[in-house]
Every structure is written in C-alpha cells, then in structure tokens.
C-alpha cells in the first residue's frame, strides 16, 4: 500500500463502505447457502420418501405406513401381475420414440437454423405450440384423430391402412410420443446449433469432404452434445407421460398407466422400487454425461 492510494479520511471512507460489505457478506455466507439447502430439500423430499419406502416391509395392500426394513421389494422388483409387460412396453416405446423424435427433431432444428425460407418464422413459432398446448387437449385430439381413421364412416377412414391407428395400442402410443417429443428435441438441438460456426463446414468441404462426410465428420460431432441432451429429455418425457398416453393407449399398459390403474386397489412396494430404479438410472446417465463433458473440455 502506498500513501497515494489511501483515502484522505480513512475513518469516513470505512464507515460509508462497511454496511454494504456486511450485507453482501451475510448474503454470500448465510442467506444464499441456506436458501439453496431449503430449495434442494424441497426438491428431494419426495424422492427420498420414495426410495425409503422401497425398503418398507409393508403389510396389507398399501405401502403407506413404515413397518420395518426389508430387501424383499428389491429382490422381487417386477413381481406383480401386469408389471413386467408394462415396463417392457414403456421402455420399448421410450426407446423407439426417442430415436424417432431425435432424428426428426434434429433435422428440423438444422433446417430451421441454417436455411432462410418463406415461413421460417411461422414454423419456429409453431414448434412451440405442442409444448404450450395442455396435454389433455392433445390427448383428446389425437384420440379423435385415431378413432376417425379407424371407425366405419370416420372422417379419415380408408386413408390410413386398417389396424395401424385403430384399434388403439402400441403404435398409437408411439406416434403420440414421437409427436410431443419433437418440439422438445427441436428446441434443445437448435440451442446447440445456434453456436455452431458454419465456416467449419466450409473448411471441411474445402479440405475435400463432400456434404455427407462433412455432416458426419464435423457437423454431427459438434452438435452431438445437444442431440444427446435432446434424446435424454425425450426418453424421460416418454417414460413419464401419463395424460396423452391414457387417451391413446387403448388396452395397452405403459408403466404410468399400469401404476395408475392398480393404485385404486393396491400400492405395491414394486412401484417404489421401479420408481427408484428409473431415478437412479437417470442420475447415472446425467452423472456420466457430466464426467464425459468435463473430460471433453479438458482434453
């Protein structure tokens, strides 16, 4: 410290400066951390309860009251009529709808960011519509559509081959899930493409890569994190969806539909176990992708 840089009247300067300092200090050291703990607790309580009750040695039909610790639930995670089928259906639909919506959404996202064409603005807006529409509206409208294509005398009867959209079932759930996932994929992928430098593609072509090679060697690897994030989002939205699925599932059960149907008569521990598995699976994937990203940034 040199004399020059000291204030003329040190005490006056200090007293005027101290209050905001103290306030910021309190904000940094007590308020924000405390607030964060409360907020995270709020988020985690339901999950913690779900996991705890997956170890409950419950009596009767409903897993509501703590009776003691057991691993029975985890030893027999799928031991309930209809549960294995529901899980299989859920995973299968989530898997297929993720692939379908990620491919379609990625290309829509690419088209919307790189080409300017008439109606681009309108399409950009339209992409948000399915996200903004209440699920119950989408569900009922899809149901109407499917039924109309299948019923004798329906508006769309004969346009789509019989048995594809009606009777309701696996195919209709899949179509519905791909549809509502596309918007999320487009939005997620577009965010990643927005930061993409087109000159990299020009550089690739300059170095002898044709359009397809350029896409696979340069464009795709660079937007891949966005595509992966979009795919994970689509998968979890699909696994999770209840409202739309309940309209278009017919007699087919996905896990949420099955859980809801059974919950009126029983709440087996298996619901907690499968729920915990899904949660832990999600944590694992997010954790892995974070590690990957951290590596990628360092290397």
């Amino acid at each position: 410290m040199t004399a020059v840089s000291q204030p003329l009247n040190p005490t006056a300067a200090a007293t005027t400066r101290r209050p905001p300092r103290r306030f910021l200090h309190a904000l940094d050291h007590w308020f924000l951390p405390g607030f964060t703990v409360v907020a995270i607790g709020y988020l985690l309580v339901p999950i913690v309860v779900m996991i705890i009750f997956s170890f409950n040695d419950y009596q009767g039909k409903f897993n509501f009251v703590w009776h003691g610790f057991t691993l029975q639930g985890w030893f027999h995670p799928f031991d309930w009529p209809g549960l294995p089928d529901a899980i299989k259906t859920s995973l299968f639909i989530a898997f297929l709808s993720t692939i379908g919506s990620t491919i379609l959404g990625t290309f829509i996202g690419l088209a919307l960011t790189r080409y300017s064409f008439k109606g681009r603005g309108a399409i950009n807006g339209l992409i948000f519509l399915p996200m903004a529409t209440p699920e119950i509206v989408m569900g009922s409208s899809l149901l109407t559509l499917f039924v109309n294509s299948g019923l004798q005398g329906g508006m769309l009867n004969g346009i789509v081959p019989k048995g594809v959209l009606f009777p309701l079932g696996f195919t209709t759930i899949l179509i519905a899930h791909i549809m509502f996932n596309i918007s999320y994929v487009v939005v997620t992928v577009k965010a990643r493409i927005a930061g993409f430098d087109r000159r990299l593609e020009e550089a690739a072509m300059d170095l002898g890569a044709d359009e397809l090679t350029t896409f696979w060697k340069v464009t795709f690897p660079l937007i891949f994190p966005g595509v992966l994030a979009a795919a994970l989002l689509a998968f979890s939205l699909s696994i999770d969806d209840f409202i739309i699925t309940s309209f278009v599932s017919g007699t087919t059960n996905t896990f949420p539909i099955w859980a809801y149907s059974i919950i009126k008569n029983a709440l087996p521990v298996q619901i907690n176990v499968v729920g915990s598995m899904v949660f832990l699976g999600a944590v694992l994937i997010v954790g892995l992708s974070n590690i990957r990203q951290a590596r990628g940034n360092r290397a």
Binding site: D197, R199, L200, E202, A204, D206, L207, G208, A209
Partner: peptide
C-alpha cells in the same frame, strides 16, 4: 464446381480449426 472438387485450399480469417479434433487430426483431415 463444389469446393471439395477444387484443387484449392483456404486459410480462413478465423482459422476455422475443428474444435473436436486434435491438431494432428485437423492437419490430416484433407
């Protein structure tokens, strides 16, 4: 003719190096 069919190479103002590839892979790209 598209650029990949021309016997010409470019050094871009912004360099446009591929960020996901190593220096070696960048140089070897062509």
């Amino acid at each position: 003719l598209p650029s990949y069919k021309r016997n010409v190479n470019t050094v871009f103002q912004s360099y446009a190096l591929f960020p996901h590839l190593t220096i070696e892979e960048n140089v070897a790209f062509g």
